[in-house]
């Protein structure tokens, strides 16, 4: 293998029932940052059936090229069909980096391909960087999150990684971005197709599980009442967020148990966690301190929540929350 033959960052952009999955766009955003450092291109691999009309969307989110394989065999994800198609793309275009979302699809497809390509794969990365030697540095948690490890794959190409959804930042959509769209026609060895999809079942969800929410507006004793939580709900709605609660409000019968954050509730790590009127008992902190950004509002300036918050406001949440809601509505409208 000659390393210099391998160039450009390839992103596998997942679709399900023709719908582009957000993690694919997040990866295009990250790939763009990495590509600048390497002076290389970002290439989206987009596989499915009757999906061609969506290629321009991927360009607008950061792809310089889209390699689109649009055929009935690729309508639904199946390991072997997708592996054959991507293997052929890699053989033809020789990417230096190959990124997947760490979803049930990416974590099924990634290892299968790494073995077929005889290269390394780093799972569930939370950080990707380029080293001085222009190699990919992949950082991931291990031992149940107790340890972080930075892993490299310097002697094999492509350098492969699956990346956790919700960790990377997608770019702002830019309708003026131009990119090249390439039709790719894989040739299939159908004798290897040994798995058949019989049916897909989607759960009907009336509300989102708080562990899946990107933004949580969480209230505690300082919110105090059902009325108080209604104002939190308004704030949450402006941001497409979900409402969560500390234990005290669940014990008081004000909020249901399935939205309780903490040791005896759920562990969450959203992109943004509003802790409103929550003092921050250690059991609560255990359930939310991994959140990327924590903004706390509390009357008591000695509340332990301020020990883990990125921004702390000492004040009355009953006054601040309605004002904040109003301001955010305005900001979002203007955008």
């Amino acid at each position: 293998m000659n390393k210099s033959d391998y160039k450009n960052i390839f992103v596998f952009v997942e679709q399900r029932d023709g719908e582009i999955q957000p993690v694919g766009l997040e990866l295009l955003g990250k790939a763009n940052e990495l590509a600048k450092e390497l002076n290389e291109k970002v290439v989206a691999m987009f596989l499915g059936h009757n999906i061609k009309n969506q290629c321009q969307t991927l360009v607008e989110y950061g792809a310089d090229q889209v390699i689109c394989a649009d055929c009935p065999e690729l309508k639904d994800y199946l390991t072997e069909q997708y592996s054959q198609a991507i293997y052929q793309i890699v053989q033809e275009y020789k990417p230096s980096i190959l990124l997947f979302g760490a979803t049930t699809i990416g974590r099924d497809l990634g290892p299968r391909l790494s073995a077929r390509l005889t290269t390394g794969l780093t799972a569930d990365c939370t950080k990707l960087e380029i080293s001085e030697e222009k190699e990919l540095m992949m950082t991931r948690p291990a031992f149940g999150g107790n340890l972080m490890a930075t892993i490299m794959c310097t002697e094999h190409r492509p350098q492969m990684s699956t990346v956790r959804p919700g960790v990377m930042q997608k770019m702002d959509r830019d309708a003026s971005r131009k990119g090249e769209i390439i039709d790719f026609h894989p040739t299939f060895d159908t004798s290897k197709f040994k798995v058949k999809l019989i049916k897909k079942v989607k759960a009907v969800k009336d509300k989102m599980d708080i562990t899946e929410a990107k933004v949580l507006v969480s209230g505690g004793r300082g919110v105090g009442s059902t009325e108080g939580f209604k104002t939190l709900k308004k704030l949450a709605d402006t941001m497409g967020a979900e409402v969560a609660s500390s234990r005290s409000m669940v014990d008081a019968g004000i909020m249901p148990h399935d939205v309780q954050v903490g040791q005896t509730g759920k562990t969450v790590r959203p992109n943004l966690y509003f802790a409103i009127g929550i003092s921050g008992a250690i059991q609560h902190l255990a359930g939310m301190e991994e959140s990327d950004l924590i903004i706390a509002i509390n009357k008591d300036k000695f509340a332990p929540i301020f020990g883990v918050s990125d921004l702390g406001i000492v004040g009355d949440c009953h006054k601040i929350v309605p004002l904040l809601t109003e301001r955010l509505q305005k900001e979002i409208q203007e955008k």
Binding site: G120, M137, P141, G145, A149, T150, L311
Partner: peptide
């Protein structure tokens, strides 16, 4: 093909500003 370059425990979080 992969090598662990370094491993480390997660840095303890530093509290942000309080206003």
């Amino acid at each position: 093909p992969t090598r662990v370059k370094k491993s480390f425990t997660k840095p303890q979080k530093v509290a942000g500003e309080v206003y």
